[in-house]
Design a binder for these strands. Structure first.
Length: 202
DNA sequence: CATGGGATTGACT
DNA sequence: GTCAATCCCATGC
Protein backbone atom coordinates (compact mmCIF):
# COMPACT_ATOMS: atom_id res chain seq x y z
CA UNK A 1 0.00 0.00 0.00
CA UNK A 2 1.30 3.49 -0.80
CA UNK A 3 2.14 5.87 2.00
CA UNK A 4 -0.76 8.13 1.01
CA UNK A 5 -3.23 5.24 1.01
CA UNK A 6 -1.96 4.13 4.40
CA UNK A 7 -2.47 7.65 5.77
CA UNK A 8 -6.08 7.62 4.61
CA UNK A 9 -6.69 4.57 6.80
CA UNK A 10 -4.66 5.70 9.76
CA UNK A 11 -7.55 6.74 12.01
CA UNK A 12 -9.40 3.48 11.29
CA UNK A 13 -6.37 1.29 11.90
CA UNK A 14 -5.68 3.11 15.16
CA UNK A 15 -9.10 2.15 16.49
CA UNK A 16 -8.19 -1.54 16.15
CA UNK A 17 -5.07 -1.21 18.30
CA UNK A 18 -4.50 -1.42 22.07
CA UNK A 19 -5.29 2.01 23.55
CA UNK A 20 -1.68 3.13 24.10
CA UNK A 21 -0.79 2.41 20.46
CA UNK A 22 -4.06 4.03 19.39
CA UNK A 23 -3.18 7.20 21.28
CA UNK A 24 0.15 7.40 19.49
CA UNK A 25 -1.36 6.66 16.07
CA UNK A 26 -4.11 9.27 16.41
CA UNK A 27 -1.56 12.10 16.55
CA UNK A 28 -1.63 13.59 13.05
CA UNK A 29 -5.25 12.59 12.39
CA UNK A 30 -8.04 15.18 12.30
CA UNK A 31 -11.07 16.09 14.39
CA UNK A 32 -13.86 18.15 12.87
CA UNK A 33 -17.20 19.51 14.01
CA UNK A 34 -19.13 21.50 11.45
CA UNK A 35 -16.89 24.05 9.78
CA UNK A 36 -14.17 23.86 12.46
CA UNK A 37 -11.41 21.26 12.34
CA UNK A 38 -7.88 20.64 13.52
CA UNK A 39 -4.98 18.21 13.41
CA UNK A 40 -4.46 16.21 16.60
CA UNK A 41 -1.08 17.15 18.12
CA UNK A 42 -1.45 15.74 21.65
CA UNK A 43 -3.19 12.68 23.13
CA UNK A 44 -3.22 10.56 26.27
CA UNK A 45 -4.21 6.91 26.72
CA UNK A 46 -6.45 5.70 29.57
CA UNK A 47 -7.20 2.05 30.36
CA UNK A 48 -9.47 0.40 32.92
CA UNK A 49 -6.50 -1.46 34.42
CA UNK A 50 -4.97 1.73 35.89
CA UNK A 51 -6.49 4.08 38.50
CA UNK A 52 -6.23 7.33 36.53
CA UNK A 53 -8.86 5.98 34.11
CA UNK A 54 -12.51 6.73 34.86
CA UNK A 55 -13.28 3.14 33.85
CA UNK A 56 -11.16 1.88 36.76
CA UNK A 57 -14.29 1.95 38.97
CA UNK A 58 -16.24 -0.08 36.42
CA UNK A 59 -19.41 0.71 34.52
CA UNK A 60 -21.34 3.60 36.10
CA UNK A 61 -23.79 6.27 34.95
CA UNK A 62 -20.77 8.36 34.04
CA UNK A 63 -18.37 5.81 32.59
CA UNK A 64 -20.55 3.51 30.49
CA UNK A 65 -19.53 5.01 27.12
CA UNK A 66 -15.92 3.98 27.82
CA UNK A 67 -17.09 0.38 27.47
CA UNK A 68 -18.80 1.00 24.13
CA UNK A 69 -17.42 0.15 20.68
CA UNK A 70 -14.22 1.83 19.46
CA UNK A 71 -14.87 5.11 17.65
CA UNK A 72 -17.52 6.34 20.09
CA UNK A 73 -17.02 9.72 21.77
CA UNK A 74 -16.72 9.93 25.56
CA UNK A 75 -17.37 13.56 26.54
CA UNK A 76 -17.41 14.39 30.24
CA UNK A 77 -17.40 17.50 32.43
CA UNK A 78 -14.14 18.37 34.09
CA UNK A 79 -13.84 20.61 37.14
CA UNK A 80 -17.50 21.51 36.77
CA UNK A 81 -16.66 23.74 33.85
CA UNK A 82 -15.04 22.10 30.84
CA UNK A 83 -16.05 19.36 28.41
CA UNK A 84 -13.25 16.92 27.58
CA UNK A 85 -13.29 14.78 24.42
CA UNK A 86 -12.11 11.17 24.27
CA UNK A 87 -12.05 8.60 21.49
CA UNK A 88 -13.22 5.26 22.90
CA UNK A 89 -10.77 2.46 22.04
CA UNK A 90 -10.34 -1.31 22.47
CA UNK A 91 -13.12 -3.87 21.92
CA UNK A 92 -16.56 -3.36 23.45
CA UNK A 93 -16.69 -4.21 27.18
CA UNK A 94 -13.10 -3.07 27.70
CA UNK A 95 -13.02 0.41 29.27
CA UNK A 96 -10.41 2.47 27.46
CA UNK A 97 -10.14 5.76 25.59
CA UNK A 98 -7.78 8.30 24.07
CA UNK A 99 -8.07 11.83 25.50
CA UNK A 100 -7.67 14.47 22.78
CA UNK A 101 -5.55 17.14 24.49
CA UNK A 102 -4.66 19.58 21.73
CA UNK A 103 -5.24 20.42 18.07
CA UNK A 104 -3.51 22.53 15.48
CA UNK A 105 -6.35 24.59 13.95
CA UNK A 106 -6.99 23.60 10.34
CA UNK A 107 -10.31 25.16 9.26
CA UNK A 108 -12.87 27.51 10.80
CA UNK A 109 -10.28 29.43 12.75
CA UNK A 110 -12.59 32.48 12.74
CA UNK A 111 -15.29 30.44 14.49
CA UNK A 112 -12.76 29.18 17.01
CA UNK A 113 -11.67 32.72 17.82
CA UNK A 114 -15.25 33.83 18.33
CA UNK A 115 -16.06 30.87 20.61
CA UNK A 116 -12.84 31.19 22.58
CA UNK A 117 -12.62 34.96 22.80
CA UNK A 118 -8.92 34.72 22.01
CA UNK A 119 -6.89 35.80 18.99
CA UNK A 120 -3.61 33.93 19.05
CA UNK A 121 -3.81 30.71 17.04
CA UNK A 122 -1.85 28.82 19.67
CA UNK A 123 -4.46 29.75 22.32
CA UNK A 124 -7.41 28.28 20.42
CA UNK A 125 -6.99 24.50 20.85
CA UNK A 126 -3.89 24.05 23.07
CA UNK A 127 -5.66 22.12 25.83
CA UNK A 128 -8.45 19.55 26.25
CA UNK A 129 -10.97 22.11 27.51
CA UNK A 130 -9.94 24.72 24.97
CA UNK A 131 -10.42 22.55 21.90
CA UNK A 132 -13.94 21.46 22.83
CA UNK A 133 -14.88 25.10 23.34
CA UNK A 134 -13.27 26.07 20.01
CA UNK A 135 -15.12 23.29 18.16
CA UNK A 136 -18.42 23.79 19.95
CA UNK A 137 -18.35 20.29 21.48
CA UNK A 138 -20.52 19.88 24.58
CA UNK A 139 -21.79 17.08 26.80
CA UNK A 140 -24.77 16.53 24.50
CA UNK A 141 -22.37 14.80 22.09
CA UNK A 142 -21.34 12.19 24.65
CA UNK A 143 -21.62 8.63 23.27
CA UNK A 144 -22.09 9.75 19.65
CA UNK A 145 -20.15 8.11 16.82
CA UNK A 146 -16.95 9.80 15.68
CA UNK A 147 -17.22 7.97 12.36
CA UNK A 148 -20.75 9.14 11.52
CA UNK A 149 -20.73 12.60 13.15
CA UNK A 150 -21.58 15.26 14.17
CA UNK A 151 -18.01 15.13 15.46
CA UNK A 152 -15.78 13.31 12.98
CA UNK A 153 -12.43 11.60 13.36
CA UNK A 154 -10.61 11.69 10.02
CA UNK A 155 -7.30 10.77 8.41
CA UNK A 156 -4.30 13.10 8.36
CA UNK A 157 -4.59 16.01 5.90
CA UNK A 158 -3.39 15.02 2.42
CA UNK A 159 0.15 15.98 1.58
CA UNK A 160 1.21 16.70 5.14
CA UNK A 161 4.10 14.65 6.55
CA UNK A 162 3.22 12.72 9.70
CA UNK A 163 4.83 14.23 12.80
CA UNK A 164 7.57 12.64 14.81
CA UNK A 165 6.12 11.60 18.19
CA UNK A 166 7.45 12.25 21.66
CA UNK A 167 6.06 10.36 24.69
CA UNK A 168 5.92 11.36 28.33
CA UNK A 169 3.89 11.21 31.54
CA UNK A 170 0.25 12.21 31.51
CA UNK A 171 -0.73 15.67 32.75
CA UNK A 172 -3.04 16.77 35.54
CA UNK A 173 -3.47 13.39 37.24
CA UNK A 174 -2.35 12.16 40.64
CA UNK A 175 -2.39 8.40 40.12
CA UNK A 176 -0.35 6.28 37.70
CA UNK A 177 1.74 9.33 36.82
CA UNK A 178 4.69 7.12 35.94
CA UNK A 179 3.07 5.67 32.81
CA UNK A 180 4.46 7.37 29.65
CA UNK A 181 1.07 7.49 27.98
CA UNK A 182 1.09 11.07 26.69
CA UNK A 183 1.95 11.56 23.02
CA UNK A 184 2.77 14.83 21.27
CA UNK A 185 3.76 15.92 17.79
CA UNK A 186 7.43 16.77 18.24
CA UNK A 187 8.09 20.49 18.17
CA UNK A 188 4.43 21.51 17.81
CA UNK A 189 3.61 24.94 19.22
CA UNK A 190 -0.03 23.90 19.61
CA UNK A 191 0.33 21.40 22.47
CA UNK A 192 -1.03 22.17 25.95
CA UNK A 193 2.41 22.18 27.54
CA UNK A 194 5.26 22.53 25.05
CA UNK A 195 8.08 20.10 25.61
CA UNK A 196 11.11 21.55 27.35
CA UNK A 197 13.63 22.10 24.53
CA UNK A 198 16.35 20.25 26.41
CA UNK A 199 14.20 17.10 26.48
CA UNK A 200 13.18 17.39 22.85
CA UNK A 201 16.51 16.24 21.53
CA UNK A 202 16.97 12.51 20.89
C1' DC B 1 -28.12 12.63 51.93
C1' DA B 2 -23.41 15.13 52.63
C1' DT B 3 -19.03 15.48 51.07
C1' DG B 4 -14.72 15.61 48.48
C1' DG B 5 -12.30 15.65 44.43
C1' DG B 6 -11.04 16.26 39.94
C1' DA B 7 -7.90 13.86 32.61
C1' DT B 8 -8.71 22.62 33.48
C1' DT B 9 -8.33 27.29 32.56
C1' DG B 10 -7.49 32.15 33.16
C1' DA B 11 -6.47 35.85 36.12
C1' DC B 12 -3.49 37.50 39.32
C1' DT B 13 1.02 38.10 42.72
C1' DG C 1 4.49 30.73 41.12
C1' DT C 2 -0.84 30.71 43.53
C1' DC C 3 -5.80 30.40 43.39
C1' DA C 4 -10.87 30.48 42.48
C1' DA C 5 -14.65 29.07 39.50
C1' DT C 6 -18.13 25.38 39.30
C1' DC C 7 -20.76 20.88 39.28
C1' DC C 8 -21.30 16.12 38.43
C1' DC C 9 -20.57 11.98 40.32
C1' DA C 10 -18.56 8.32 43.27
C1' DT C 11 -18.26 7.27 47.84
C1' DG C 12 -19.45 6.78 52.59
C1' DC C 13 -22.38 7.53 56.51
Amino acid sequence: MSAAASDRQRHLRALQLPVVAAAEQLVGCTISHGRASGVIVETEAYHESEPACHAFVGRTARTWPLFAAPGIAYVYRSYGIHALLNVVAEPADVGAAVLIRALEPLTGEDLMRARRGRDRTTDLCSGPGKLTQALGIGLQLNATSLLDGPIRLGPPPAGRPLPRIVAGGRIGITRAVELPWRFCAAGSRHVSRPWPPNLLAA
